[in-house]
């Protein structure tokens, strides 16, 4: 029976950040590309927080493949539907992830994909409705980095 020593543990986990909680950053970091993207998306509309769901794992086993789903409650009719949902990862080298473009034929404003997260960070989804209003939600994902590679 081998008890792993502290040295072995540290060496095996080298490059592995222990899961940490980032201090929750203000939703818009001033002057960043992230902020620019959100501003451009929202235009002149007021951004309302909530009214949009972002489903992400609390802890991602690997930042290469993090499952992500967004959904916005809407009748999805010609007159009243969700037009776009943009997803941004605040702590990635480039914040852009994906923009979903819905139509009244979508039936629902729900979509899923898998994303890359470079580290523990906030993921933000911004939705624009057909009446021009904008909603926003953010969620923190802890990313397990390193561990056993190979």
């Amino acid at each position: 029976m081998q008890q792993l020593t502290r040295r072995q543990m540290l060496a095996l986990g080298s490059g592995a950040a222990v899961i940490t909680m980032l201090p929750v950053a203000p939703i818009l970091a001033a002057g960043s590309e992230f902020e620019m993207r959100v501003k451009k998306f929202a235009g002149t509309a007021m951004i309302r927080e909530g009214g949009i769901e972002l489903d992400l794992p609390e802890i991602a086993e690997n930042g290469n493949t993090v499952p992500m789903s967004v959904s916005v409650g809407s009748p999805m009719t010609k007159a009243d539907h969700v037009q776009q949902v943009m997803v941004l990862a605040e702590g990635n080298p480039l914040p852009g992830v994906i923009t979903f473009n819905f139509s009244h034929m979508s039936g629902s404003a729900e979509a899923s994909t898998r994303m890359r997260l470079a580290k523990t960070q906030n993921v933000v989804a911004v939705a624009r409705m057909s009446d021009g209003s904008v909603r926003m939600v953010k969620s923190v994902v802890k990313v397990t980095i390193g561990g056993c590679g190979g």
């Binding site: 029976m1 792993l4 543990m9 986990g13 592995a16 222990v18 980095i145 390193g146 056993c148």
Partner: peptide
């Protein structure tokens, strides 16, 4: 000897 334990985050 150590399955089910973590090596740091893994």
């Amino acid at each position: 000897d150590n399955y089910g334990n973590r090596i740091r985050a893994d």
